[in-house]
């Protein structure tokens, strides 16, 4: 260990060069994102099959979701993707203040997303639409309740909704943890023009979470948007 007289800050001992370390880190994150893709993939398969099995249930269920709130969250996530990209940009330039600023904005947007999601979930639970623990009472939803023949299919839609968005929200929470760590590290002055791959790699993760939402929004919220009078 003592031989490393020419120690480069941020370079782990088992790598030959910074370039090699960065390549490994980026590749590792991309491979991890493949794993994530397949993780969500199982749910997308379930979605496809159940949507084809219960088209009416999915149309009706989609109408129960709040498009303005979902749309707002879409915009929030897109903006956060931009701010994350800018954080990466300023980390590459080695501008610490701007890096921290954009990381903070991204973190704030993450919380905005999660808060909106929380209110959406609460309203579903309040309307007795949570499909578990015996709390699903579709007859009490809206003025007339969900039609009897659709109650079961709508329930299928709702658990897919909760599972997919819940898993997505979990990834947002993990993302918030990553952002906080990055802000802490940036504050300590750990990132330089030469060493910024943690920011870049976290950026990849953040954009991936954004991409998942890009698909979830139309699949869940907009599926029944064109059908009038199905909801309440």
């Amino acid at each position: 260990m003592a031989e490393h007289a020419t120690h480069v800050p941020g370079l782990a001992h088992h790598f030959v060069s910074m370039e090699q370390q960065k390549e490994a880190g980026t590749l590792g994150m991309w491979i991890f994102l493949l794993t994530e893709l397949m993780f969500f993939g199982g749910l997308f398969l379930a979605y496809t099959i159940y949507r084809t099995t219960y088209p009416e249930g999915f149309l009706y269920g989609s109408h129960l979701l709040n498009v303005p709130l979902g749309g707002t969250n879409t915009v929030v996530l897109i903006v956060s993707s931009l701010t994350m990209a800018m954080a990466v940009y300023y980390s590459q330039l080695g501008e610490k203040k701007k890096l921290i600023f954009f990381l903070l904005v991204t973190l704030a947007l993450c919380f905005v997303f999660l808060i909106i999601k929380y209110f959406e979930y609460m309203s579903k639970i309040h309307d007795h639409l949570f499909p578990a623990f015996g709390t699903y009472h579709p007859s009490t939803t809206g003025p007339h309740g969900i039609p009897l023949e659709l109650q079961q299919p709508v329930r299928v839609f709702l658990w897919i909704y909760f599972l997919m968005t819940g898993l997505h929200a979990l990834h947002m929470i993990v993302g918030a943890g990553i952002l906080i760590t990055l802000i802490y590290m940036a504050q300590k002055g750990r990132f330089t023009k030469q060493y910024n791959s943690p920011v870049e790699i976290s950026g990849l993760y953040w954009h991936f979470v954004d991409i998942v939402w890009i698909f979830l929004f139309p699949l869940l919220y907009l599926t029944g948007f064109h059908v009038s009078g199905a909801g309440h």
């Binding site: 980026t26 590749l27 991309w30 491979i31 994102l33 493949l34 893709l37 397949m38 993939g41 199982g42 997308f44 398969l45 496809t48 099959i49 084809t52």
Partner: peptide
């Protein structure tokens, strides 16, 4: 390499979805 990784990831997702459906 990164581009190949992404394309192969999408290919595997397609295997799951297409053969499942």
């Amino acid at each position: 390499l990164t581009q190949v990784i992404i394309i192969s990831g999408l290919f595997w997702l397609l295997i799951l979805l297409v053969m499942g459906v």
